[in-house]
């Protein structure tokens, strides 16, 4: 075992654990923030300020009975949550979260802080996130329940529609960064303009960032676009029939997807681990802060905005977001050609 291999394995495990923990932390943040916004207290009994609440929830879910409707398709019913969770975790594999490091001189050559450095990272994030739709559709179909089926159909229609705007917003950054590698795109955002403004792509692509965030919320099925699980109409949507750890896997997938979308947004638009005051080696603190800020925004949105109507969502996606994304891409292309950025 070479030190490099050990470092890679440690990194992989760390990312996996980090995602699990971040999902747990997000559950706590979400509940406490929701309570704050609604003038309640939220969970405060388990552990200090209720911090152990997510772990108590997981323990409770583990001891629940695994239910499966008699008319459900057994294989697909079991497979669906696995696909969802796998797709959610796999997408993070190519997302870099810190500058290359030698781990305090333990390694001869610096390794970049990510599970796999791939030169088509953005395409891979995009490909894996498009696989996540299968988990939801199959869950909806195999449950053999009309609410589940409707939730699954809605989810897939929504995810496919918003994937286009999502991809076009990404393409704007690709034009500026001139690369498909996330590490390279992040490194092009180091430094400042005029000594004050950081060279983040969000300042060159403000519209692209907005489109990316909106489409990202729709992709992760969060409020105000949480139609697949709209309680008032669909009970719980595609996971109505799920219980115990299978339900927990969908839950986990949702939060991990949020973290992944936020991490990609931080890398593409907010300069990743680059920021003032901190040395390069501590850049991951900046990265965590940026991801945290976007996640806070997500939760804030959810508890502030009411849900759209489904036809409004589709009309918005196709008639507003997509044309704006196309115009944004055209303008970016023209600007890159003209100024030779």
């Amino acid at each position: 075992m070479t030190p490099l291999l050990v470092a890679q394995i440690v990194l992989t495990l760390a990312v996996f654990q980090g995602l699990l923990l971040s999902a747990a932390a997000m559950v706590w943040v979400e509940r406490r923030l929701a309570a704050l916004l609604q003038q309640r207290l939220g969970p405060i009994r388990v552990g200090w300020q209720g911090l152990l609440q997510p772990f108590a929830d997981v323990l409770k879910l583990m001891f629940k009975e695994e239910l499966r409707p008699a008319a459900a398709d057994a294989i697909l019913f079991t497979l669906a949550p696995v696909i969802s969770a796998t797709a959610a975790f796999a997408a993070f594999a190519v997302v870099p979260f810190g500058a290359a490091t030698t781990f305090f001189g333990l390694l001869d050559e610096p390794v970049s802080l990510q599970v796999a450095d791939v030169n088509v990272a953005i395409l891979i994030v995009f490909a894996i996130s498009s696989m996540g739709v299968y988990g939801i559709v199959l869950a909806g179909w195999s449950s053999n329940n009309k609410y589940s089926l409707l939730g699954g159909l809605r989810a897939s229609a929504q995810m496919i529609s918003y994937e286009l705007s999502y991809g076009l917003a990404l393409a704007g950054v690709l034009l500026l960064g001139n690369s498909l590698s996330l590490t390279e795109i992040v490194n092009q955002q180091s430094g400042t303009w005029l000594g004050v403004v950081p060279r983040w792509f969000v300042f060159l692509q403000p519209l692209g960032f907005l489109i990316f965030m909106t489409a990202g919320i729709a992709e992760t099925n969060r409020a105000p676009f949480d139609f697949p699980e709209a309680e008032q109409e669909l009970v719980a949507g595609y996971h109505t029939e799920y219980s115990s750890m299978r339900f927990a896997m969908f839950f986990l997938a949702e939060y991990v997807n949020m973290v992944t979308v936020s991490a990609v947004a931080a890398d593409l638009f907010l300069g990743g681990w680059h920021g003032p005051f901190l040395p390069e080696s501590l850049g991951w603190i900046w990265f965590l802060a940026k991801v945290g800020a976007i996640l806070f925004f997500y939760v804030w949105m959810r508890w502030t905005l009411p849900r759209y109507r489904y036809d409004q969502l589709m009309a918005f996606g196709w008639k507003v977001l997509l044309p704006v994304a196309v115009v944004n891409l055209l303008a970016t292309g023209a600007a890159v050609l003209y100024f030779g950025l």
Binding site: V120, L123, I124, F126, A127, I128, S130, M131, V133, Y134, V137, W141, L149, G152, L153, S156, I160, E163
Partner: peptide
């Protein structure tokens, strides 16, 4: 590149369309 578009377009879009129609 082909590997990525194979997944994005074939598996992520065309096959979802098939799944939709079957459902």
């Amino acid at each position: 590149f082909v590997a990525a578009i194979q997944i994005i377009i074939y598996a992520g879009a065309i096959m979802v369309l098939f799944l939709f129609v079957v459902m």
